[in-house]
């Protein structure tokens, strides 16, 4: 406290103003907890829960939730349908391979010699055994059976014990497949009308004079 105590009525104002203006005192520790407890429903509800209430009460909110749920159901249904069909198709294709009953097929299907069962290795072995090299003559248009000259010559050399018939066939094929050279091509003259007439004359000499006369 500053100054002496006021004795006059005019001094008391300044004395109290000087000493009490700006006077501070610490609060009790539990005051804030009381304010905090009172503040939670008051101030926070104004900002937070009021907005939340408006959201929960909003018809737009529930409409949005419904729309999202409906979309999810449609997508799930579409997915289940397409993927389910695809899986069933795959299962139907795989069924003979996956089905354990396939193993219980009658033994005739397991027979190696059974004609109904296709086996490329078995077929090739059976064909080889029945048709030796060069035995089958290539037919017109049968491209598969036509062999190159090199292949034939190799096979010819390798197969010393092949019958003569095969050799003859190979020789004939070589002749047929031999390319025509330019000289050979030139040796054969192109048949002209004059040559053709001379041939006909020689062929029909003495048989058809009328034709000759007419020609003259």
């Amino acid at each position: 406290m500053s100054g002496r105590l006021p004795e006059h009525i005019d001094e008391i104002e300044s004395f109290y103003k000087e000493n009490l203006e700006g006077f501070e005192s610490l609060p009790s520790p539990d005051l804030w907890s009381k304010i905090d407890a009172s503040l939670s429903p008051a101030v926070e509800s104004k900002v937070g829960s009021a907005a939340q209430k408006s959201i929960w009460k909003s018809k737009w909110f529930w409409g949005g939730v419904g729309a999202i749920a409906l979309t999810a159901i449609v997508i799930a249904g579409f997915y289940a349908k397409t993927v389910g069909v695809r899986n069933s198709e795959i299962d139907s294709i795989n069924k003979p391979f996956l089905d354990p009953d396939v193993k219980k097929l009658p033994p005739r299907y397991e027979d190696e010699n059974a004609p109904s069962v296709y086996s490329p290795s078995k077929v090739s072995s059976s064909v080889k055994s029945k048709a030796p090299l060069g035995d089958v003559e290539p037919k017109l248009g049968d491209v598969k059976n036509i062999k190159s000259t090199q292949q034939i010559s190799v096979e010819k050399n390798d197969s010393a014990t092949v019958p003569n018939k095969i050799n003859e066939t190979v020789e004939r094929l070589e002749e047929e497949l031999k390319p025509i050279t330019d000289e050979e091509h030139k040796e054969e003259p192109e048949p002209s009308k004059k040559n053709m007439i001379e041939r006909l004359k020689e062929k029909n000499k003495g048989k058809n004079d009328l034709f000759l006369k007419k020609d003259k």
Binding site: L20, G22, F23, E24, S25, L26, P27, L31
Partner: peptide, 8 residues
């Protein structure tokens, strides 16, 4: 604020 307000 509280010290001043308590003083008042």
């Amino acid at each position: 604020l509280v010290p001043r307000l308590k003083g008042v």
